[in-house]
C-alpha cells in the first residue's frame, strides 16, 4: 500500500555544506532504492532552534515529501534514529487535504523559481 509521506528532519549545524548535502542525499537514495519516489525536497538551511537540542542552538532543516510502501517507513525511521548527524526528525502521513496543500506549496515555489 503506497502512501504519501512527509519527513522534516534537523541536522546538526556542525557539519560543513557538502556533508549536509551528502546526509540528505543518503536518505533520498535510501528511499529511491526501496521503491519510493521523492516528490519534493526543500532545504530551509540553518535556522535558530526554539530551544537548544543536544546543546546546539541552530540546526539545518530539510523537508522530504515522498510516496513509499507503508512497510518501509519503520526501516526509514530506524535509519534516522541510528544516524547521529540527525538531531530530530518527524514523519507524517499526508491525508487528502495535506497532500493538496503540499502540492499547492510545491507549485507555488516552482512558479517563484521559474
Amino acid at each position: 500500500m503506497v502512501n504519501h509521506y512527509e519527513t522534516v528532519f534537523v541536522l546538526t549545524p556542525v557539519l560543513s555544506e557538502p556533508q549536509m548535502k551528502e546526509a540528505v542525499d543518503k536518505f533520498e537514495n535510501l528511499l529511491t532504492q526501496n521503491g519510493g519516489t521523492i516528490l519534493n525536497r526543500e532545504e530551509w538551511g540553518l535556522r535558530k532552534l526554539a530551544y537548544p537540542i543536544q546543546a546546539k542552538t541552530s540546526g539545518f532543516y530539510c523537508v522530504l515529501q515522498y510516496d513509499v510502501e507503508t512497510a518501509f517507513i519503520a526501516k526509514l525511521e530506524t535509519e534516522f534514529t541510528r544516524d547521529e548527524r540527525v538531531l530530530r526528525f518527524l514523519t507524517t502521513r499526508l491525508d487528502k487535504y495535506a497532500f493538496e496543500y503540499a502540492e499547492k506549496r510545491r507549485n507555488h515555489t516552482k512558479k517563484e523559481e521559474a
Binding site: V8, R88, L90
Partner: peptide, 10 residues
C-alpha cells in the same frame, strides 16, 4: 508537532 521540531518553544 512544531514544538517537537523546535519550530515553536514549549
Amino acid at each position: 508537532k512544531a514544538r517537537h521540531l523546535a519550530l515553536l518553544p514549549y
